[in-house]
């Protein structure tokens, strides 16, 4: 019984990490209508940058925040310098993000080498927390708390601020948003900074659990893709729900059906594509 409970906790933890990854992916998809195929690379590169900051003697959280900031700059730069040149050509933009993902993957291999790097659990969270006679690992609970905090912050930003209203307008109808004077292209840059930053932060946070290795990007990108197709593009609630579903499918699939875990992961996505192409909470079909 205890083992299943722990598996459930692990699933929710993974769901939290996946939410941080897919929230930005979903907003970028919703606003710009492209699946950003570098998003897994943002996660991995963020984690590696975090490793380097840790190596400089910084604390875990300082390293995570600095990695997030670095990724925000890189993400914004990619949108500004490359994708902007292909405005309106969605297919070309997707191909550029695909090419970039190869470049980033190889660059990481060149700089940080091929061996997996495991990050130490931050001091103070390496212990366990007993709740109702069951012992939970403290760090995993912390990830869930942080994911919830960021989810609430993103939700408040989207629903309660002027900027959020502009982003929602852009997701609903970008040409109309332009007509009423919203500078949608500026939102593109901003959303890329935000998405890349959160993904990089999630990469560092995932470090103690997943460790950092070449191929982490290719492991994470399909998960983000599934989540956004499940939840619908541009929807935070959809990303949250999709993340938890994928978190559970991933962990339980690995334990119950290790050989076909990967297929189980993709099945719900295929069903959604067939019967509800706009996703559970989405407004547009991709």
């Amino acid at each position: 019984m205890n083992q299943w409970l722990l598996l459930g906790v692990n699933s929710i933890t993974l769901g939290g990490l996946l939410f941080l990854l897919s929230a930005g992916f979903s907003l970028i998809f919703g606003l710009m209508r492209i699946p950003n195929l570098t998003h897994g690379s943002f996660f991995m590169l963020g984690a590696y940058i975090g490793v380097s900051f840790l190596g400089l003697g910084l604390g875990f959280w300082a390293a995570a925040l600095l990695a997030a900031a670095a990724m925000a700059v890189i993400g914004g730069g990619i949108e500004r310098l490359l994708l902007r040149r292909l405005a309106g050509q969605e297919l070309a933009q997707v191909l550029v993000t695909l090419g970039l993902s190869f470049m980033i993957a190889d660059l990481c291999l060149m700089i940080w080498g091929g061996d997996p790097i495991s990050l130490d659990t931050p001091a103070g969270l390496s212990g366990a927390v007993p709740i109702a006679s069951i012992v939970f690992p403290a760090y995993r609970l912390a990830i869930v708390v942080i994911a919830v905090v960021i989810a609430v912050a993103l939700w408040l930003m989207l629903e309660r601020t002027r900027l959020g209203a502009m982003i929602r307008a852009g997701v609903d109808d970008a040409p109309m948003a332009r007509v009423v004077g919203i500078r949608v292209s500026r939102l593109f840059t901003l959303i890329f900074c935000l998405g890349a930053g959160i993904a990089g932060f999630a990469g560092v946070m995932g470090g103690p659990i997943l460790s950092v290795y070449p191929g982490l990007d290719a492991d994470m990108l399909p998960l983000a893709l599934i989540i956004v197709i499940l939840g619908g593009t541009g929807s935070l609630l959809g990303a949250l729900l999709g993340s938890i579903v994928v978190g559970f499918l991933y962990n339980f699939g690995q334990v119950l059906f290790p050989e076909i875990a990967y297929i189980i992961l993709f099945l719900p996505m295929l069903l959604i594509l067939l019967f509800r192409p706009q996703g559970l909470f989405g407004r547009h079909a991709p």
Binding site: L95, V96, L98, G99, L100, F102, M103, A105, D106, M110
Partner: peptide, 9 residues
């Protein structure tokens, strides 16, 4: 792979 990506872009 880096070259592949760069040519692609």
């Amino acid at each position: 792979n880096f070259l592949l990506g760069a040519i692609f872009v």
